[in-house]
Design a protein around this nucleic acid. Sequence first.
DNA 1: AGATTAGTCAAACGTTCGTTTTAATCATAT
DNA 2: ATATGATTAAAACGAACGTTTGACTAATCT
Lengths: 238, 238
Amino acid sequence: MSEPKPLPDTRERILDAAERLFMESGYEGTSMRMITGEAEVNLAAVNYHFGSKEALLREVFRRRLSWLNRERLSALNELEEKANGEPLKPSAILEAFFGTLLRMGTDEALGGMTFLRLLGRTLTEPADFIRAFFAGEYAEVVERYKRALFRALPEVPHEEIIWRFHLMLGAMSYAIAGTDALQIVTGCELDMNNEGPDAARQLAERVMPFLLGGLRAPLPPFQVSKEQQSTTEPTKAA
Amino acid sequence: MSEPKPLPDTRERILDAAERLFMESGYEGTSMRMITGEAEVNLAAVNYHFGSKEALLREVFRRRLSWLNRERLSALNELEEKANGEPLKPSAILEAFFGTLLRMGTDEALGGMTFLRLLGRTLTEPADFIRAFFAGEYAEVVERYKRALFRALPEVPHEEIIWRFHLMLGAMSYAIAGTDALQIVTGCELDMNNEGPDAARQLAERVMPFLLGGLRAPLPPFQVSKEQQSTTEPTKAA
DNA sequence: AGATTAGTCAAACGTTCGTTTTAATCATAT
DNA sequence: ATATGATTAAAACGAACGTTTGACTAATCT
């Protein structure tokens, strides 16, 4: 009924196997027998240690998100302390929010790319209990960062900021989750390996400028149509 | 064995029900009994008309993607004819590629927002047969648009263009698929209804500037860190 | 009319699912 | 050593899954 004991490694082995398999095959596409098979534990062990398959998925995420939430909050706190009441730079906010996430991908002890890809995929999973779980897990952090962005961009309507926050989350999640899926769609190899710390580092270098460019794009006054504002290509930063 | 006959509406009713349910609950989360129940047809009708659940999903997409592919190609052809051999404007390419997609969301006869959201979600579904299917469906169109982007941005490395194409696809798919999911995460209502033509029109106005901003962002020379290139907020377009 | 076919229907097929049960095993503290 | 509580093990549970069968209906063609 309780878990005060340090426990052997059965719990961790299950969590690791579930993390990898959920990433690879999705929640509904992964059976308990696949998980216990890969973890080399008895089938009943999952229900004994976690109670149910749903609770297992939640625990897979809690184990990682508790670190991520803590780190994201402390990164923002640090920025705000240094700023002495001044609004933050948008780029610094993004660096804190997404940079923290990408740092998980470089550290195998924090789940590495496996967890990053699982996270990106699961955000679009339709199951109700998954959505409800994420809502609770993310609420505080997102609220803090939203507020910071409002202050950093005082002339931009809040609604527009929230939209772009959505879009940045989407681009990042997709970039993380769908690397190989998108490579199939676009038919390009992109010569990056999806595993390991290098992948996360490449992601950071590629994605952050894109996100910043999107966040600072001209506001939509009326319609995006015929006469566009400019045709300049991406400027080479010195 | 063949289907030359016009057939009653059983096929269409199954396709419509499957489209909606796959969108709502995902492929693995939707059972044949849910589909035939919603379509008010016999359970065996799916296997009779389509052969299997996998084949049904493929047909759900084929019915819409054949239109989308045709339209995207003809939009690009028209642009290139008008351009008389000159490279196209990146904004025009995006308008052709994503604008065509978003136009599906305003037309209920083409699937409307239901299909748009299904498409966005399914691109991240891990099942192998789904990925293989999309690879085949998208190959030609993506190849054409990639080439157009290469010509439109001659000074940008091809690899970078492909990356940003990925990222734009991701932001768009996520924006379409995850509207309510992301609203839960960010705790904001965004006062848009997810259904109907208005949603697609709003999406276009909000997302297209973001995508253009990302596409034209400064290239990553070294690292995105401490000293950012600028802190300007989104400029208000007159 | 009778023969043929496409389509529908209820029922059942064998599997696999998540979960539960019951007993055996292990560690530790008395 | 023995009792106790935590963990593992093997087997089975009922439910739900995708699919198939075989009888029945309605339309089509000669």
